[in-house]
Amino acid sequence: MSEKDPLFEKTISSQPIYDGRIIKVKVDEVVLPNGKTAKREIVNHQGAVAVMALTDDNKLLAVRQFRKPLERSIIEIPAGKLERGEEPIECARRELLEETGYTAKVLTLLSSFYTSPGFADEILHLFVATGLTAGEAQPDEDEFVEVLHLSLEEARQLHAAGDIRDAKTVVALFAWEAKMLGFNHV
């Protein structure tokens, strides 16, 4: 975010469009590196976490839930948005418990990444959860999920069939595959 960056786009005006519970939308007018101006539609988001929870018998905890923008149910790893001032690791603990009923002895940050930097500032923190203990799920009142325990092969098949398509779960699936291949970064 430095004006010393030769690709920096200086904001000359900003117009708020929407201020919602999960996102804010604005349109910024910017000066491009060549001196011309352009408009940028921007979604602001507080950030989120996702949890790649692996059981002792090497199963991935996943949830199947309906996603209105897609008009269908998909399979995802547990995830949710950060509350204001909440630490990502605490959010990961909360979301894992709410969506699956499980708690983890160990939560390790695998990576943090921007989900769609072309139009949004959302950063997602991906955790690996191990040492799991089963309990009772505590979903939000507007959240309906089916908890799944997937082997790596089952997850691969669901990905191939189009049932696993969201970025966080695909990243987790590839990280899990890398771990199974002997890469030690997971």
Rank of each mutant, 00 (worst) to 15 (best):
Q46H: 10
R64E: 11
A53V: 03
I89L: 10
L54G: 00
L109K: 10
T55E: 01
I75C: 03
T103C: 04
K68V: 07
R40L: 15
N44F: 13
G85E: 05
A120F: 00
E99K: 14
L70W: 06
A53C: 10
C91N: 14
D28W: 06
L109M: 10
E90A: 02
M52S: 08
I77Y: 05
E29A: 07
K105E: 01
L97S: 09
K26M: 03
V51H: 01
E87R: 11
A50V: 00
A53Y: 03
A48Y: 01
A120L: 07
T55P: 02
T108M: 04
P117G: 06
N34L: 04
T103L: 03
K59N: 07
G118A: 14
S116C: 12
I75V: 07
D121T: 12
L70V: 11
L109D: 06
K59E: 08
V51R: 02
V43W: 10
P69I: 14
E76L: 04
L109S: 07
I42R: 11
V25R: 08
L32K: 15
G80A: 04
A79Y: 14
T103P: 09
S112F: 06
V106D: 11
S111D: 12
V25Y: 05
S73R: 12
E98L: 08
S116V: 15
P69L: 14
A38R: 08
I75G: 02
N34R: 09
V25K: 12
K81F: 15
G47P: 06
V30R: 07
G47D: 04
N34K: 08
L96K: 10
R67D: 11
R93N: 01
E99L: 06
I77R: 00
G80M: 02
A62M: 04
Q65G: 08
E95V: 07
R84T: 10
E41V: 15
I23L: 13
L110E: 03
T108W: 07
Y102F: 08
T37D: 01
I89W: 08
S116T: 14
F119L: 08
T100N: 07
V49W: 01
P33C: 12
L107M: 10
F113I: 07
V63K: 04
M52I: 05
E41W: 08
V43T: 14
A38L: 05
T108D: 15
E95Y: 13
Y114K: 12
G35F: 11
E41I: 15
K26I: 06
T55S: 03
E87K: 14
V25A: 09
K59R: 14
Q65T: 11
R64K: 13
V25N: 05
T37F: 00
A79Q: 14
A48F: 00
A104N: 01
K105S: 02
I42A: 09
I74E: 08
D56I: 02
I75M: 01
K68P: 05
T103N: 10
L54E: 02
L32I: 12
G35W: 09
I77T: 11
A62K: 00
I77C: 05
A53L: 02
R84Y: 10
